[in-house]
Computed example of a mutant assay.
Amino acid sequence: MAGHSKWKNIQRRKNAQDAKRGKVFMKMAREIFVAAKEGGGDPEMNPSLRLAVDKAKASNMPNENIDRAIKKATGDLDGVSYEEMTYEGYGPGGAAVMVKVLTDNKNRTAAEVRHAFNKNDGNLGENGCVSYMFDRKGYLVIERSAHDVEEDDLMLEVIEAGAEEMETNEETFEIYTEPESFSEVKKKLEQSGYTFETAEISMFPQTYTPLGEKETEKMLNLIDTLEDNDDVQDIYHNLEADEEVLEKLT
């Protein structure tokens, strides 16, 4: 996982821009809707729904919004049908990009995603063209300031809980798991009193693509354009950008 901080810097920028809370809540509601539709409306019996609900609560999404999305999915309220799709392609400079969407009109969404790539010197590819460059992992972040714990002691607890790896920096402990063991690791650490800044299953690049300032600017514009699309849920990429360049551009 070396170099993951590069990914996290982009994620922090993304999170800062996600202050458009109405848009964020809408995307989370869709994720909850699909999880409940596929696996039932009880979070205790549906791990995907439980993860989606936890993610929504961590972003302070109101409980009534969460309940409404579940009720729509289970038939208690009228709702539309969403289809989950993933688009793969290359951004400027050949950076790998994966775009996860939930849409009720795949033709519209495909055209909009393709336009975003083309506008920013990228291009969509075939399914599988970049996904092999990413690993699917569970990801848990514990803030150091929120817990009085020594790194070695937490490492032992993390190993006993079944996690795969832990990285540390001045602000956080970052824990990685296999997707299948994510819920169990999270549950065991919660039982030990830990809370999480981030708790999700995500895609992490195996290697990074370094870009210069102009290509980085175009790549960030591509990410911004995709994030502004209501159908886009998540964007994964392997951009490596110089910290000074990122600060200048953001």
Rank of each mutant, 00 (worst) to 15 (best):
K6S: 06
I10N: 05
Q11D: 06
R12E: 15
R12P: 00
R13K: 12
N15A: 14
Q17N: 10
D18R: 13
A19T: 09
K20L: 13
R21I: 10
R21V: 05
G22R: 11
G22I: 02
M26G: 13
M28F: 05
R30Y: 01
V34R: 02
K37E: 04
E38M: 09
G40F: 00
G41T: 02
D42Y: 03
M45H: 06
M45D: 14
N46H: 09
N46E: 10
S48Y: 15
S48C: 03
R50F: 02
R50A: 14
L51P: 00
K55P: 00
K55C: 10
A56R: 07
A58D: 06
I66F: 04
I66A: 06
D67R: 12
D67Q: 15
A73N: 12
T74M: 12
L77R: 09
D78R: 05
G79S: 07
Y82M: 08
E84S: 11
E84V: 02
M85D: 01
Y87P: 09
G89Q: 07
Y90L: 15
G94F: 05
G94N: 13
G94H: 02
M98I: 09
V99N: 04
K100G: 00
K100F: 12
D104A: 14
D104N: 13
K106P: 07
R108F: 11
R108H: 11
R108N: 10
A111M: 03
F117Q: 02
K119T: 12
N120R: 11
N120L: 11
E126V: 12
S131Y: 10
M133L: 15
F134M: 09
R136E: 14
K137L: 11
G138V: 08
L140Q: 09
V141M: 08
I142W: 01
I142M: 00
E143H: 06
E151S: 10
E151D: 09
D153V: 13
L154A: 05
L154Q: 03
M155D: 10
M155E: 15
L156P: 00
V158S: 09
E160P: 00
A161H: 06
A163W: 13
E164P: 04
E165W: 06
E167W: 05
T168F: 01
E170S: 09
E170D: 15
E171Q: 14
E171F: 07
E171W: 07
T172C: 05
T172D: 14
Y176G: 01
Y176I: 00
T177D: 04
S181K: 15
F182N: 01
F182P: 00
E184L: 01
K186G: 00
K187D: 15
Y194I: 13
F196Y: 01
A199D: 07
E200C: 02
I201A: 07
S202D: 13
P205D: 08
T207H: 10
T209K: 10
K214M: 06
T216L: 00
E217Q: 15
M219K: 00
L226N: 13
N229K: 11
N229L: 13
D230G: 10
D230N: 10
Q233E: 14
D234V: 08
Y236G: 05
H237W: 08
D242T: 04
D242V: 05
E244W: 05
E247A: 04
K248S: 14
T250E: 13
